[in-house]
Computed example of a mutant assay.
Amino acid sequence: MSGFMIRRLIQALLVLLTMSALVFVAVFAIGDPLALLVDPQADRHDIARVRAGLGLDQPWWVQYARFVGAMAHGDLGRSFVHGEPAIRLVLERMPATLELAVAALLIALLVGVPLGLWVGLQPRSWSARLIDALSLLGFSLPTFWVGMMFIMLFGVWLGWLPTGGRGETTLWLGIPLSIGSLDGWRHLLLPALTLALFKCSLLLRLTASATREALRQDYVRFARARGLHPARIVFVHVFKNILIPIVTVSGLEFGSLIAFAVVTETVFAWPGMGKLLIEAIGQLDRPVVVAYLLVTVTLFVTINLVVDLLYALLDPRVRLRSRP
């Protein structure tokens, strides 16, 4: 186990270093932030002074070397626009993004897994065929379009739910969360449903496929031959075994919910990391863009590690060895 953890930590550091280099070069190439930060009427001496103050007068490899050296001390640079540490800006927005991603994943699990289990157990029923057909909508409809339709229907026409913002928040262990108030829940519901639609369809089809596969296994046939109650067969023998792919895919999809919540946060003006990223890209705020992507990669690596550990706990046949 210790060898496995050490290998994963080394892999995580290599991924972070590689990602930081790729992102830094890409952001360096997209444009000059001084075009947005400096008054167009400023003379070349003022521009040169601002450029030197931001450290942009050096070649990109020198800037990157300085960035890596500062990153080793936990410093990801200061925002060109806000003048604050970039990592602080990203971490301040992280609770909003994590809250939205957790809510979307819970909705996807609570809806997709039971429906997928039903489709897998009753594949020829009319209800299962209808559910399976409707699940295609989750794969087909673009997220931004779904969000706008939700806004039009529930926010504009019916007036049931707010169309943007995070609403009232309450502090839980010093972290502002929307789930502590009714107004916060009303603001959270639409973006969470929008973000959960694709994941719900994915989990539904995964669960249905895994259920059909489990029903063909010998241990299920043996359980039926012993005369066990159908409910016991489903929830003890079938559901316990299909949990492995569900947990694995859910963990990976949770990471993608965090990383790709950008569109949903933009449509609903949700003040998370994704909205901050869009603003930073528009303002060519390089430190914030790099900090966001490094934080996202770190979350991905951490989630993958947790999924690997859960996989080993759910399936005793899996062993985490110190050597590959």
Score class of each variant (00 low, 15 high):
Ile6Asn: 03
Leu9Ala: 14
Val27Met: 15
Pro33Leu: 06
Leu34Asn: 09
Leu36Cys: 05
Gln41Asp: 10
Arg44Trp: 07
Arg44Lys: 09
Arg51Met: 00
Gln58Trp: 01
Pro59Thr: 01
Trp60Arg: 05
Tyr64Leu: 12
Tyr64Phe: 15
Ala65Cys: 06
Ala65Glu: 11
Arg66Phe: 05
Gly69Ile: 11
His73Cys: 09
Gly77Ile: 07
Arg78Phe: 15
Ser79Met: 11
Val81Ile: 08
Gly83Asp: 02
Ala96Met: 00
Val102Ile: 15
Leu106Cys: 15
Leu109Cys: 12
Leu117Gln: 13
Ser125Met: 10
Trp126Thr: 15
Ser127Glu: 12
Asp132Gly: 15
Leu134Gln: 04
Gly138Val: 11
Ser140Asp: 10
Thr143Asp: 09
Met148Phe: 13
Leu153Arg: 03
Gly155Tyr: 08
Leu158Gln: 12
Pro162His: 10
Arg166Ile: 00
Arg166Met: 00
Trp172Lys: 05
Leu182Ile: 09
Arg186Gln: 13
Thr194Leu: 05
Leu195Ser: 00
Leu206Gln: 02
Arg216Cys: 04
Val220Ser: 00
Arg221Glu: 08
Arg226Leu: 07
Leu228Ala: 01
His229Gly: 03
Phe239Glu: 05
Lys240Glu: 07
Ile242Ser: 03
Ile242Met: 04
Ile246His: 08
Val249Asp: 06
Glu253Ala: 14
Glu265Asn: 03
Ala269Arg: 03
Trp270Asp: 02
Ile281Val: 13
Gln283Met: 07
Leu284Pro: 00
Val288Tyr: 00
Leu293Gln: 05
Leu294Glu: 06
Thr298Leu: 15
Leu309Trp: 12
Leu309Thr: 09
Leu314Lys: 06
Arg317Ile: 11
Val318Met: 10
Ser322Thr: 15
Pro324Arg: 14
